[in-house]
């Protein structure tokens, strides 16, 4: 939660995302004002008129029923981890475990947000964890508010998907 999914989608999509944000309550209210409870949606229109649909799924476990729904028919996964959370590396583990099958069939790229203001984990710690898991996934420090950062993330995903699709 709070990794910047909604902002990241907004920074590269053709239309402002359709959001299902509500005001946070309880502990979450101290972390951010609103949170996504179902999904964010927008799209990028290609030159031939086709659309690539962008879905953001809420990060909290209690919404995990949405995760499987939104990955159906998906071509790749961008995983944004909020470095300002407690145990963000373990959080990455949990998401990678949950999406294991989808990632094996498509591809994943990992963006770590809020690294400038939070030092819960360094980029090296994420990379080391991936190495321990035997997974070679792109991992970047990103600012979801910054369009070039999000584009770099998407480009890395495209490169991964292209390599997967048997370009060789």
């Amino acid at each position: 939660m709070g990794a910047g999914k909604t902002t990241a989608i907004a920074s590269i999509s053709d239309e402002p995302p359709v959001c299902t944000d509500v005001n946070c309550s309880g502990k979450e209210a101290s972390l951010k004002q609103t949170t996504t409870v179902a999904m964010d949606y927008s799209y990028i229109q290609l030159e031939d008129g086709k659309r690539v649909h962008l879905y953001g799924t809420p990060g909290q476990e209690r919404f995990n029923f949405m995760w499987n729904i939104l990955t159906q028919g998906g071509i790749g996964l961008v995983l944004l981890i909020n470095n300002d959370h407690d145990e963000p590396v373990q959080q990455m583990d949990r998401y990678l475990d949950h999406f294991r099958d989808f990632i094996n069939e498509t591809g994943v790229v990992i963006g770590i947000t809020r690294m400038g203001i939070a030092d819960q984990a360094s980029l090296e710690e994420y990379q080391t964890r991936l190495l321990q898991r035997g997974q070679i996934y792109p991992v970047f420090e990103v600012d979801g508010r910054c369009e070039p950062d999000v584009k770099v993330l998407v480009y890395a995903l495209l490169a991964v998907l292209d390599a997967h699709s048997g370009a060789l």
């Binding site: 990379q127 070679i136 996934y137 792109p138 420090e141 950062d149 490169a159 390599a163 060789l168």
Partner: peptide
């Protein structure tokens, strides 16, 4: 063995393509 630690400053599309292939094959 692992994806290189590219930063936002040294983005080069060619390197992403090379890394993606060598990460897989």
């Amino acid at each position: 063995k692992a994806w290189p630690g590219f930063t936002r400053h040294d983005f080069k599309p060619e390197y992403f393509k090379i890394a993606a292939i060598l990460a897989r094959h």
